[in-house]
Design a protein around this nucleic acid. Structure first.
Lengths: 329, 329
DNA sequence: TTGTACGCGTTATCAG
DNA sequence: CTGATAACGCGTACAA
C-alpha cells in the first residue's frame, strides 16, 4: 500500500503537505495540490484505515454477535443489520456464537479491545439458560454502546428490540379456538429460550382463558423431529390444532399429518413460525407467524448508531416489532 | 479503555517497562512484573487492537463478500468460514453485495485500505453477467490474497473452491433416465449465473446423450414462482421428471404437482438443489443435490489462511467439493 | 505557502 | 534491570 510518506519522498515535499493537499486544505497552493493529486492517483493511494481509526478513536465498525446463521430468522436480521450499517458507512464484524457462552464471551473480549464502536448481540442459548451476564455488562462498563435483539437479557440495561412473541401466539391460538378447534398441541424445539417460553405461555394462556385443555410437547433437539411428531400424531389421532413455535416444526408437522392421510387445513389447523420464504414452502396450507427479521435488523442498528452518535452507552427503550401473520382460509 | 501510558503514570515507571512486564520479558524484574500485572488486572487493561494491528501490519481479519445471506447455501458457507476463521483467531468482516456490482466494488475498496489481511469473494450476479473484473484484479494488485468460491470469475488468477455442478446434475438426470422417465423439464431461477449455466448444461447433455428431448424453463425471478410452475404442469400434463437447479423451485414444483393430484415420486420424479434442512422440509419425496456449504466455507478459508501465512497473493488451485446426493427410493 | 512536531497505543531496539 | 527513542500511518496545531 502506498503511504503519504512514499508520496512525500517522491515529490520532495513533507508528509503533511501531501496530507493537506489531498484533503484540499486551503493552506496548499493549487500547483502543489495538482502535482500531489496526480501522483496519488497514479499510485492509487488510499489512506490506511487503521491509522485513521486509531487517530480518530472511531472504527466505523459494529460488532455483531448472533447465535447462529443457519436459522433463516437470524440470516434475515443480519441482512437488515448489514444493509442499514452499510448505508451509514459502517462495517460489521460478525461472530457466530453457535449458542456457546464461551465463544460469545471471547468475541466480546476481543472486539471490545478497540475494534468496534458498538455491539449488537443476540444471546446464546447457553447464556440465557445459565443467566450469565458479566460479559454483557462488561461491554457497558467499557463505555461501549450495546443493543440487544430477540435473545435479550432482562438484567442488562440497554436498548432492546424484540417481537411480540407472547401476543402473536396468543392471538393465533385464539384464532384457532374461534374456528372451533378442540384438541390442541404445541410442538416446541426451543423450550429453554426466552422467546420459546413467551410463545409457549401465549399458547397456554389462550387455551386456559378459553377453558380448553392442551398438550405441550418439548421435542428438545432437531434430530428425529419427524419421527417424534409422527408418533405423537399416531397416538393422538383426534388432534385438530397444532401450534409450532419454531421455523421448522410446523412444516414437519404438515408433512407428517399428510403422510397419515390427514387433509390440511381441513382436518388439522397448523400454525408455525416462519420467515419470508416459508409460505411458499408450505403452499399456504399452514398459517405462518412471520418474524420481521429485516425490520428487526434495521431498527436494532438504527438504535445503535443513535447511541454511538450521542455517545450514550446504556439505557434505552425496548422496541417491539410486531410479527406478521399469514393466515390460512 | 485503559492504556499502557495510564498504567505507567500510576506506577511511576516508563511505558516500555509496562509493556515488557505484561509481555513477560526476561528483562524485567519479578517484583516489577508483579506490580504491573496486578494493576493491569485491577483496571482490566486490554491492549488496543488497532494499535497492534497498525504496528504489526497484520489485522488477523478476513474480508468476506457474498451476494446474499438469505439463500441458505451462502448462510452455510458463511458459517463454515466464520468457524474456521475463529478457530485460527481470525475475525471476519462481512459485506453482503446484494448481487450489486457497485456495492461489491465499494466494499473491496474500503476493506483493501488496510482493514483485512485477505479476501473471500463470491461474485455478485451483476459482476458475473457483465464480466467486470477490474475490482477483483485490484485486490491482487494491492498484494492482498484472494480466494473465490462458487461464483468464481475465470479471468482472475486466484485459488477457487467450486462444486461439481455439471456432473452432479448430469448424474442425477441420468439417474432419472435409468428409472425410465420420459418427459423432462428443467426449472431454472438462476439461468444467468455461472453455476446455473453449468447445471443446465449437465441436464441437457445427459438427455442428449440418451437421445431424449426436454424443456428448459427460465423462471427469471422469484415472484409468482408457483403460478408459473403450475401453468407449465397444467399445459404439460405428461411431465414425469422435473429437475430444479436452485434451492426453492424443486419444493414449489412438489407442492404444485401434488395440488394437481399427482403422487410424488410415483407420477413425477423431482430432483432439486438443497442444503442440510431441505430433505426434512420435503419429507424425502424429492431427491436433493446437497451443496456442502460448510465444507466449502472451511476449505475456502483454509486456502486463504495458507496464502496469508506464506505471503502468496495470486495463483492457486481450483478445488472441487463434490455435491452430496440424497435420492428418493 | 510549506514544514515541524506531536499524538493516537503499541512494540522493538538501543542506551544507560 | 529500566528507560528513552523510534516506528507503524495519519492528521493537525503551530512555527517558519
Amino acid at each position: 500500500m502506498t503511504t503519504l510518506k512514499e508520496l512525500a519522498t517522491i515529490l520532495n515535499v513533507s508528509v503533511s503537505t501531501v496530507s493537506k493537499a489531498l484533503n484540499d486544505s486551503p493552506e496548499i497552493g493549487e500547483d502543489t495540490k495538482r502535482r500531489v493529486k496526480q501522483l496519488a492517483a497514479e499510485l492509487d493511494y488510499q489512506p490506511n484505515r487503521l491509522a485513521q481509526q486509531l487517530k480518530s478513536n472511531a472504527t466505523k465498525t459494529i460488532g455483531v454477535i448472533i447465535p447462529t446463521i443457519i436459522n433463516p430468522f437470524f440470516a434475515e436480521v443480519l441482512h437488515g443489520i448489514e444493509n442499514y450499517a452499510d448505508s451509514h458507512q459502517y462495517d460489521i464484524i460478525t461472530t457466530i456464537s453457535n449458542e456457546s457462552f464461551d465463544k460469545e464471551q471471547r468475541a466480546i473480549k476481543m472486539l471490545a479491545r478497540g475494534s468496534v464502536d458498538g455491539f449488537i448481540v443476540a444471546a446464546a442459548r447457553e447464556t440465557q439458560m445459565e443467566q450469565k451476564i458479566a460479559h454483557l455488562q462488561s461491554i457497558l462498563n467499557n463505555q461501549i454502546p450495546l443493543v440487544m435483539f430477540d435473545r435479550v437479557v432482562d438484567q442488562i440495561n440497554c436498548a432492546k428490540v424484540v417481537v411480540d412473541d407472547y401476543e402473536s401466539v396468543y392471538n393465533a391460538t385464539q384464532n384457532l379456538i374461534e374456528k372451533g378447534r378442540q384438541h390442541f398441541v404445541l410442538f416446541s424445539n426451543i423450550a429453554d429460550l426466552s422467546v420459546g417460553k413467551l410463545r409457549s405461555q401465549g399458547f397456554q394462556d389462550a387455551l386456559k382463558d378459553a377453558g380448553l385443555t392442551f398438550d405441550v410437547v418439548d421435542l428438545k433437539a432437531i434430530d428425529n423431529l419427524n419421527g417424534k411428531i409422527l408418533d405423537y400424531l399416531k397416538t393422538h389421532s383426534n388432534t385438530d390444532a397444532i401450534v409450532s413455535i419454531d421455523h421448522l416444526t410446523g412444516i414437519v408437522a404438515l408433512n407428517m399429518a399428510e403422510s397419515l392421510g390427514k387433509s390440511i387445513p381441513t382436518d388439522i389447523d397448523i400454525v408455525g413460525f416462519g420467515y419470508t420464504e416459508t409460505p411458499l414452502l408450505v403452499n399456504n396450507k399452514i398459517a405462518i407467524i412471520q418474524q420481521k427479521g429485516e425490520a428487526i435488523g434495521f431498527k436494532t442498528t438504527e438504535l445503535l448508531l443513535e447511541k454511538i452518535k450521542h455517545k450514550e452507552v446504556s439505557g434505552g427503550d425496548t422496541i417491539v416489532i410486531p410479527n406478521g401473520f399469514n393466515p390460512v382460509y
